[in-house]
Amino acid sequence: MDEDLDTLSRDELIAEVRRLRAGIREHRDSTGHDLCWHHPALWGLLPEKSDPQPDVPDWPQFLRGCIRYRQSLDRQLPDAPRTNRPFTPDDTDR
């Protein structure tokens, strides 16, 4: 699957690593409501071009998953800053 790497020069490999690191950092640095969004740009960094469509849970199951995710943040990041910034329609431009 990663045979394309075998043909890249050292400089091309370094450029690829930098590109991938930038994408990972962008995803890592998501915060607030951005944590909830679908991030196709992250897997768009891969050389194989596909458009995987996720299975989207029905609302009750989806909201239970959101609650569990938020609970996991309480457990894993108990000292992280909290915000009460409301969700705004501009947040949907992801």
Rank of each mutant, 00 (worst) to 15 (best):
R68S: 09
H33L: 03
D34E: 14
C36K: 15
K49H: 08
A41R: 14
D34I: 09
P40C: 03
D6N: 12
D29E: 08
R94G: 10
P47F: 06
S50K: 14
H33N: 03
D6F: 10
H38P: 04
I67L: 08
D79F: 06
Q53K: 11
A41V: 09
H27F: 15
P47Q: 09
P47G: 08
A15N: 09
E3W: 15
D90P: 05
P89N: 06
E48S: 11
H39R: 11
K49Y: 04
S30H: 12
L35I: 00
L8C: 01
D93W: 13
L35W: 02
P81I: 04
P86Y: 05
L63P: 04
R75T: 10
G44A: 01
H27N: 12
C36I: 14
C66D: 13
C66G: 11
Q76M: 13
F62T: 07
L13N: 05
D6Q: 12
R82L: 07
D51I: 07
C66H: 15
G44P: 00
F62D: 08
Y69C: 08
D2S: 13
R68L: 10
P52F: 01
A15S: 08
L5E: 04
Q53T: 11
R10C: 10
L5V: 05
I67C: 05
D2M: 12
N84G: 12
P40Q: 04
L63E: 10
G44S: 02
R70G: 11
D2C: 12
D4P: 14
L77W: 12
G32K: 00
H33G: 01
E48P: 06
L8T: 02
R10K: 15
P57F: 02
L45C: 04
D58Y: 14
L73K: 03
P57Q: 05
W37Q: 13
M1K: 13
P47A: 08
L42M: 07
S72I: 07
Q53M: 09
H27I: 09
S30L: 15
D91C: 00
E3D: 14
D4I: 15
D55T: 15
D58W: 15
R25N: 14
G32P: 02
R28P: 03
Q71E: 11
N84V: 13
P57H: 04
G44Q: 01
V56P: 00
T92M: 05
R85T: 01
K49N: 07
P47N: 09
P52H: 02
P89D: 03
E12S: 00
R85W: 01
G32A: 00
V17H: 10
R68W: 10
T88E: 09
E16L: 03
V17L: 13
L20S: 10
D55W: 14
D90I: 06
S50Q: 13
Q76A: 15
D90G: 08
P86M: 08
P60N: 02
Q53C: 07
T7D: 12
L73I: 04
R94T: 10
T7I: 13
R82Q: 07
L63M: 14
R18D: 04
V17F: 11
P86D: 06
S50I: 14
P47K: 09
D58T: 13
H38T: 06
S30M: 15
W59H: 10
T88C: 07
V56Y: 03
E48K: 12
